[in-house]
Amino acid sequence: MRVREVVEELGLTVLTTGELDQEVRWGFCSDLLSDVLGHAREGDIWITHQRHLNVVAVAKLKGIAAIVCVRNLRPSPEVLAKADGQGVTVLLSSEDAFEVAGRLYRLLSP
């Protein structure tokens, strides 16, 4: 499944557009960026509350398919500009992390 299909199925708002045709491998939930650096895999959709500028660098380094910011926690314009510049997709959900992860899990599980 590709990022754009996940956006559609989960009703997410696209804040920045990276590679929407990237294939999604799986999901990853964490607010600790060191944990994401250590354990997320390329092609993961990353569900988080964290909005610091470093999310962009971490997503880029790990080849994250898209960041999903939950509970309408919108990153600052500075973070979005950086994501845009780096080609990192940032998505927004009004739902909480549990709901987003649950729906994504259902969507991606074989």
Binding site: D31, L32, L33, S34, V36, L37, Q50, H52, L53, N54, A57, V58
Partner: peptide, 15 residues
Amino acid sequence: RVPGGLLAVLGLLPE
């Protein structure tokens, strides 16, 4: 350190 350490939480030094 987890919790609360800059590098644990943010992974990298800030710009």
